[in-house]
Design a protein around this nucleic acid. Structure first.
Length: 267
DNA sequence: ATGGTCGCGAGGCGA
């Protein structure tokens, strides 16, 4: 059995103890991480190495940042996907944000993705988000065209709630013109399903959320969202035997606002 | 209790 998890930790340094405890407790083979919020200079390499994980990181400043830790191999590390859109606020000094890193772990091509938030429906960040997803989808389609049997996992924080059941109150989102639930964002998510990717977690975790905002007592009130996913290519989908969302990890002091999503693969 | 959050990095931005 191979266990792969994805977790937006919202700062790896602030969450180092929690992440280490979680790795030891859950015994996952691969953990993809989003929002490390650091650059290589202050990345906690020893946290992973002392627990026998190899790790690859892509971070350039205090924003975004993605990583993959693995104890089943970490090969062909790739930072950014082909033609990954750049972003610069107000159109100034666009940079390649560290939002995508890939590695081959135990024969599976695994991506750690931090999809742009979008910020507001009419914000330029939303156009960036949709374009970013469109280019990623084109890449993913190319990978499957090249090898229909490729085992690929597109994991991370997608910043999209694909159905009304994936937010605590869809009317709240519509009334306030909020992001994550718009037709355009949902169509972008579906486009991955249309080329053959699957969300194998939902069937095992009906009604579960993966994220609760820090504000407004969202967690105690049960007001969460399902926005973190591990999408699997057809060949990988057939290996998924179980999946879970670790809601417990949202509890207590020092929790990330996201919790880990785990899939288990038959050998 | 009629409000209520974090992290980074040192004021305001991003989520």
């Amino acid at each position: 059995m191979v266990k792969i998890a994805t977790w937006n930790v919202n700062s790896l340094r602030a969450r180092a103890d929690r992440v280490e405890d979680w790795l030891r407790r859950t015994d996952v083979d691969v953990l993809t991480i989003q929002e490390t919020k650091c650059k290589d200079d202050n990345f906690p390499w020893e946290l992973f190495e002392s627990n026998d994980y190899e790790v690859a990181h892509f971070g350039v400043n205090q924003w975004n940042g993605v990583a993959i830790a693995s104890r089943v191999g970490l090969d062909e590390v790739e930072r950014t996907f082909a033609d990954q859109p750049v972003f610069g606020k107000g159109g100034k000094d666009p940079i390649q944000e560290p939002r995508a890193i890939a590695a081959t772990c135990g024969g599976v091509r695994i991506w750690s993705l931090y999809v742009p938030n979008g910020r507001a429906l009419d914000d330029e960040h939303m156009a960036y988000k949709l374009h970013w997803l469109d280019v990623l989808k084109d890449n993913a389609k190319g990978w499957l065209d090249t090898d229909p049997n490729a085992q690929i996992a597109l994991t991370g924080d997608w910043n999209i709630a694909p159905t009304d059941a994936d937010v605590w109150d869809i009317q709240f989102f519509l009334d306030n013109n909020l992001t994550h639930v718009s037709d355009a964002e949902r169509a972008a998510f579906r486009s991955f399903e249309e080329i053959g990717f699957n969300d194998p977690v939902r069937a095992h975790t009906e009604g579960a959320f993966t994220y609760w905002d820090y504000t407004q007592l969202r967690f105690p009130r049960g007001e969460g969202m399902r926005i973190d996913f591990a999408l699997t290519s057809p060949s990988l989908t057939s290996r998924v035997v179980s999946a879970s969302i670790d809601r417990e990890e949202r509890k207590g002091k020092g929790a990330s606002d996201h919790v880990p999503v785990i899939i288990e693969l038959a050998d």
